[in-house]
């Protein structure tokens, strides 16, 4: 993703759709007298994918919160103890993932990298999602000039070169930490989700039950909150699960530009961007952060999917 330099493009699409995985996804379910939440839980409980991905997401979150719990397992838990003399050395006893260019323990670094990376991923996604839901719903539901205004502003951010914007903003802030990096990524991450939100609100708005509710006198935010949002939010939620992953990678791109997180910060993005120059001679530099990153992204996507499936009334 990185080339689009932003989480957004990446997850792209606008669309009204959603992937469905899991054994129960399209199973015919007999209607029972039960709450939606209760049904959903019933479904989830029986879905192994939910348990696996949920466990992994939880693990990553614990990793991010208390890295020291894991980092010391092999006796070299401090990511900042570096011996340049062991630069790029392969895995050995006590250093299961080997050493990086600076001679630091890769295992300790990968473990400690989870915090920055997951924080950036989650922060960016939450921020973008908030903006997207509000603006997308407003544009889709109100239409007219509100739609035109929001859509054009979206276009501007969409079309504005991410690199340029990120460079300027981060440079002028001159502080590069998780918060500023996340803010910048979110600033360029909301437009895609907003478009998706808008188009799905547009199509939900035309649904018979909404038209009917309107006919019965329902209007305004109540209608949006009660009927439109719950039915229109699924696509954007799915995108959000992917956005977490893409934001993690996008952070690496900012690092490339010299405006991302900086050492002594530790993140998977930094590790990956450092690894690229040496991966031909020291592939372990690329492999381990990639695995952690991929597994994290994968877990978020799958977890998001199964939860959405469980809660989607249309799939029951």
């Amino acid at each position: 993703m990185t080339e689009r330099f932003g989480p957004e493009p990446t997850d792209g699409g606008a669309g009204v759709t959603v992937a469905v995985y899991g054994p129960n996804a399209d199973q015919e379910v007999t209607v029972r007298a039960a709450t939606l939440r209760g049904d959903a839980w019933q479904d989830l409980r029986r879905n192994p994918l939910f348990w696996i991905s949920g466990f992994l997401v939880l693990l990553m979150i614990v990793l991010a919160a208390i890295p020291d719990l894991f980092a010391g397992w092999f006796g070299n838990g401090d990511p900042r103890v570096c011996d340049l003399g062991r630069s790029n050395e392969s895995p050995t006893a006590g250093h299961p993932f080997g050493f990086d260019k600076q001679g630091c323990d890769v295992y300790a670094n990968v473990i400690h990298g989870a915090r920055a990376s997951i924080s950036v991923g989650v922060l960016v996604t939450v921020l973008s999602l908030l903006i997207a839901v509000v603006l997308g719903a407003a544009a889709g539901y109100r239409g007219k000039w509100v739609d035109a205004l929001i859509s054009r502003v979206t276009d501007i951010f969409f079309g504005f070169p991410f690199i340029l914007g990120a460079l300027v903003i981060l440079v002028s802030m001159n502080v590069r930490n998780i918060w500023t990096v996340s803010l910048v990524l979110a600033l360029f991450g909301w437009p895609t989700m907003t478009r998706v939100m808008r188009s799905s609100v547009l199509s939900v708005k035309q649904m018979d039950y909404v038209v009917a509710a309107r006919g019965l006198g329902a209007d305004g935010w109540w209608l949006v909150r009660k009927h439109i949002l719950p039915n229109a939010i699924a696509p954007v939620m799915v995108m959000a699960t992917i956005a977490i992953g893409t934001a993690i990678v996008a952070e690496a791109v900012l690092t490339f530009l010299g405006v991302g997180l900086q050492a002594p910060a530790i993140s998977w993005g930094l590790q990956l961007s450092n690894a690229q120059n040496d991966f031909q001679i020291a592939s372990h530099l690329l492999i381990y952060p990639s695995i952690f990153l991929s597994v994290t992204v994968l877990s978020f996507i799958v977890l998001g999917d199964v939860i959405r499936d469980a809660f989607d009334p249309r799939l029951r």
């Binding site: 993703m1 990185t2 080339e3 990446t10 997850d11 995985y21 992917i242 992953g245 893409t246 990678v249 690496a252 990956l272 690229q276 991966f279 690329l286 990639s290 990153l293 991929s294 597994v295 994290t296 992204v297 994968l298 996507i301």
Partner: peptide, 18 residues
């Protein structure tokens, strides 16, 4: 599905260099 997720979770420059 596996293919899609692999692609989404591997940074493009890693794919490209590989």
């Amino acid at each position: 599905l596996l293919f899609s997720i692999a692609v989404i979770s591997i940074p493009i420059f890693v794919l490209a260099y590989t």
